[in-house]
């Protein structure tokens, strides 16, 4: 078991977005979050990443890498500088391997500002690999990407899961990942009895 969540309620601002999420992730598993815009995929991923309150979330080896809508790269630094910065932050030494794996060797001395969107997304993926984290949380990793780059990213996820990692991904595209499990966000939709706004509790009786 890598991650265990019990009865998690997620708010965005004052609004309860999803309620009673219970979920456990084991090594090798890939979980795909599905649901329309506004169903709380991003909110759930942010909660799992520990960016919001993390009561009810239990991670077992405490290594999570999160990638949101933005790649977190600096356009005035080169590819190499960006990635070695993250290698320093995560204190890992697999930088060269990752660069080779994602075919970034030719780009490594280019400024990130000169790269295309797809290439930047590849850098975002490279950060996930560099982190050596067991659990990847990825929010729409393939948004605005063509099929070939998308499949590169899915291959990387696939490989990660094969190596006893796990991933939780929100995406619209059908993936070809063997041990994947689809989680429908509608199951966590907020019902009237879930609502627990502190300002309404006990007010109108």
């Amino acid at each position: 078991m890598l991650l265990n969540v019990t009865n998690l309620n997620c708010r965005r601002g004052p609004k309860l977005i999803i309620a009673n999420v219970s979920l456990s992730v084991t090594a090798g598993e890939c979980i795909i979050l599905r649901g329309p815009n506004g169903s709380g995929k991003t909110t759930l991923l942010r909660f799992l990443a520990g960016l919001s309150d993390n009561a009810g979330i239990k991670t077992y080896n405490n290594s999570i890498a999160y990638s949101g809508h933005l790649d977190g790269v600096k356009s005035t630094l080169t590819v190499n500088e960006n990635l070695s910065f993250w290698a320093g932050i995560y204190a890992t030494n697999n930088l060269d391997k990752v660069i080779k794996k994602l075919n970034l060797e030719d780009l490594s001395n280019n400024l990130v500002g000169e790269l295309s969107t797809g290439q930047k997304r590849r850098l975002g993926l490279a950060r996930m690999l560099i982190s050596n984290a067991k659990i990847w949380l990825m929010d729409e990793p393939t948004s605005s990407l063509d099929t070939s780059t998308s499949s590169l990213i899915f291959e990387a996820i696939n490989l990660h899961c094969k190596n006893d990692g796990a991933a939780i991904i929100s995406t619209h595209i059908n993936l070809n990942i063997p041990k994947s499990r689809v989680l429908n966000m509608e199951d966590f939709a907020v019902k009237r009895e879930d609502e627990d706004d502190p300002f309404l509790k006990g007010s109108f009786q």
Partner: peptide, 13 residues
Amino acid sequence: EIRSRRLIALRLR
């Protein structure tokens, strides 16, 4: 202040 927060909560609901 509490009343105004209640209004916000009601509107969200």
